[in-house]
Design a protein around this nucleic acid. Structure first.
Lengths: 342, 342
DNA sequence: CGAAGTCCTG
DNA sequence: CAGGACTTCG
C-alpha cells in the first residue's frame, strides 16, 4: 500500500507539464525511498528519469515496492483539478487498479477526491550507466530554456561547446546562424588540456570507490572531486551569494523551497536574472563539443518551472544529462548527441 | 562598411513587429545620416518609410551609402534572440552578403552573435511628395489602435472626418454601424471654414521657406505655424502635463527614452490612457473626410509600441500619413483613400 | 495540432 | 491578483 502526502500540488502539476509531452504512459515505481519514474520518450530517443524522495512528502508510507502504471495525460487532467497550493494525498492499495487522489486546502474548506485508473505497463527498468562527465555546466534554467527556444527558431540542432571560459551554444540555419556565449562566472574549474587525462582517471577511481549510489550523484560527484574543491576554494569570492548552486541544492533545500513558493513559473523565469543566482558555473575536465537536437532540449527546458537552475553534463559521445533538482526530488533527461555534422 | 550600435534591441524588435507583416523584404539604405527603409507593402497599396537617425545610435559609422537587403522575417527571428535591453551592434562590410549582429548585455555575461544572409533587392527609392495637409490629428497611439481594431470588427473601411471640434471615425458593417468621436482637446487649431483658404496659403509659403528638410517635419511644420502657436498660447492650460506631444518628442528625447526603458510594449499601451498625454489635438485648415481600409490601419497601429502618440495627416484625395515618432527615428505609413463610397 | 504568450474577466 | 480564453506561432 502506498500513502503519500505532498504539501503542494503544484510540484506534481509542474512535473507533469514538464514530461507529459515526452512520455504518455509510465510506471511510478514506489518503494520506501520514494517515487521514481523512468521512461524512454515516445520516439525512444531521450530518457526521462524522475525522482520524488520520500522525505519530500509530508507523510510517506510504502509498505512494499509497487509500480503504478499511469497514463500521464489522465493524471494531468486530474491534477488540473487541484489548486497549486492544495495538499495532495496519493493512495493506492496493493494490486489496486486505481490511484486515489485527495486534494485538500487548509485555507479553504474545499476538498477534491479523484480515482484514476491505473494500467499495467511492461517496462524494463533501464539501468542508467554511471558516467563521469568531462564538463558540467550549471546555469539558470530560464537562460537555458531561452537559448534553446531562440536557437530552435534558427535551426534543428545546437552545438554545445564547453570551454574553460564559458559555454557556447550555436546553431546554423538557412537564413541565419547564431551563437550564444555564456561566460563562466569565475568559479569554473579549469583543467589544463594536458591535465585532462589524469583528471579523468581520478574521477574513474573515485567512481569505483563510491560504488552503487552513484546513480544519484553523477553531477555532484564531479563537484566534490577533491581537486575541484581546491580550485573552488581558490575562487570562492562568490561563495556567499550562491544560493542555487547544485551542492547547496542538496545541503540546503529549504532555501529552495521558499523560492519556489514565492514565484510562480512564469515570473520565476523572468526573475531568474535578477533574484536568483544567474551565474554560470562550469566544471571542466576537458573541452567538450557536442551537437544535440534542439527539439528535445526545448522539451526538457519545460522543467524550468520546477527549478531555477539546471545542470548540463557532457562527455564525448555520451548522452547529455540535463538535470533539474528541486526540493522534493529531481528530473533528469538524457539525450544522445548527434553524430557527424547533422 | 556599416557599424552601428543601438542601445536597446527593443527598438528594432518593435520596429520589426510593426512592419514585418506589411513588408517581407526591403533594403535598409545606410548612409552617414542613418538607416532608412522605404517600401511598398506586399500588395502595393501602402507605403512604409522608416528612419533611424545616426544620432539615435550610440555608435554609428557608415563610410559610404550601401543598401542592406533584408528579409524581415529572418531579421525578426534573429532579433527575437535578443533581450529587450540588449545592446545591438550591426555590422556589414561593403558588398557583404551577410549582416552581423552582436547582442550584448552589460548585466549578464551573455552575448549572442548572429550572421544573417542579405539579399539583393531591386528597389526604386520612391520620392515621397511633400504635402501640406489640411488636417493633422495627434492622438494617443493606443487610442488609435483601439479604434481601428474595434471598427475593423464591424466593417472593412473607416471614414475619418476631421472637423474643428474633433475627429470622427465611422465604419459601416452588415450587422452594425459604428462611429467614434474624439473631441479635440482645446488646443485644436480652428480655422473658420472661410478662413481655411488663407491659412492654407500661409502654410504654402512657410513650406517654401523651410525648403528641403520638409520630409522630416511635415507634421511639426503645421504645429509650428505661427497662428497655431498663438492658439496654443490661448489654451496653454494643459501645456504643463503634456509629456508626449509630438514637439516634445523632438525637444526632449531623453524623457521619452526613460519612458521606453521603463515600460515594455504591452504596459505602454495600457498606460497610454493614464500616464501619457491622452489628449487629442487637431490642426485644421479645412474640414476633411476620407475613407480608408481598416485592414491597413490596423496594421499601421502595431507601431503603437514604438510611440505613445501617433499623428494622422490628411488632405483631400491625398494619401493619409500615419506617423509614429520615437527617439531614434520614425515610422511613417502612407495609405491612399478609398474612392467613392467603398 | 499543440503550446506559448497575451488579453480579458471575475 | 488569478484563472480562463483567445490568438498566434511552431
Amino acid at each position: 500500500m502506498l500513502e503519500a502526502r505532498l504539501q503542494q500540488a503544484s510540484i506534481l502539476k509542474k512535473l507533469l507539464d514538464a514530461i507529459k509531452e515526452l512520455v504518455t504512459d509510465a510506471n511510478f515505481e514506489c518503494d520506501e525511498e520514494g517515487l521514481k519514474l523512468q521512461a524512454m520518450d515516445n520516439s525512444h530517443v531521450a530518457l526521462v528519469a524522475v525522482e520524488l524522495q520520500a522525505d519530500g512528502f509530508t507523510e510517506y508510507r510504502c509498505d512494499r515496492p509497487m509500480p503504478l502504471g499511469v497514463n500521464l495525460a489522465s493524471l494531468t487532467k486530474v491534477m488540473k483539478c487541484a489548486r497549486d497550493d492544495d495538499q495532495v494525498q496519493l493512495k493506492a492499495n496493493d494490486n489496486a487498479d486505481s490511484l486515489h487522489l485527495l486534494f485538500e486546502n487548509e485555507a479553504t474548506d474545499r476538498t477534491g477526491e479523484y480515482d484514476m485508473k491505473l494500467m499495467d505497463i511492461d517496462q524494463e527498468h533501464l539501468g542508467i550507466p554511471d558516467t563521469s562527465y568531462d564538463a558540467t555546466i550549471a546555469l539558470p534554467a530560464g537562460e537555458f530554456a531561452n537559448i534553446c527556444r531562440n536557437l530552435s527558431t534558427l535551426g534543428e540542432s545546437v552545438k554545445i561547446e564547453a570551454g574553460k571560459d564559458g559555454v557556447r551554444f550555436s546553431a546554423d540555419g538557412e537564413s541565419a546562424n547564431g551563437s550564444i556565449l555564456l561566460k563562466s562566472s569565475g568559479r569554473a574549474t579549469v583543467s589544463k588540456p594536458d591535465a585532462g587525462s589524469s583528471k579523468k582517471k581520478e574521477n574513474g577511481v573515485k567512481k569505483e570507490k563510491k560504488g552503487g549510489n552513484d546513480d544519484d550523484d553523477e553531477v555532484k560527484e564531479e563537484d566534490e572531486d577533491d581537486e575541484i574543491q581546491e580550485v573552488k576554494a581558490d575562487n570562492d569570492d562568490d561563495e556567499d551569494d550562491d544560493e542555487d548552486d547544485e551542492e547547496e541544492e542538496e545541503e540546503d533545500g529549504k532555501k529552495r523551497k521558499k523560492k519556489q513558493k514565492s514565484g510562480p513559473a512564469k515570473k520565476q523565469r523572468k526573475q531568474d536574472r535578477d533574484e536568483s543566482d544567474d551565474k554560470v558555473y562550469i566544471t571542466l575536465n576537458q573541452h567538450v563539443s557536442l551537437t544535440f537536437s534542439l527539439k528535445y532540449l526545448v522539451n526538457f527546458a519545460k522543467s524550468s518551472s520546477l527549478s531555477p537552475r539546471v545542470t548540463l553534463s557532457m562527455s564525448g559521445d555520451v548522452p547529455l544529462l540535463v538535470e533539474y533538482k528541486f526540493e522534493q526530488g529531481s528530473v533528469r533527461y538524457y539525450l544522445a548527441p548527434k553524430i557527424g555534422d547533422e
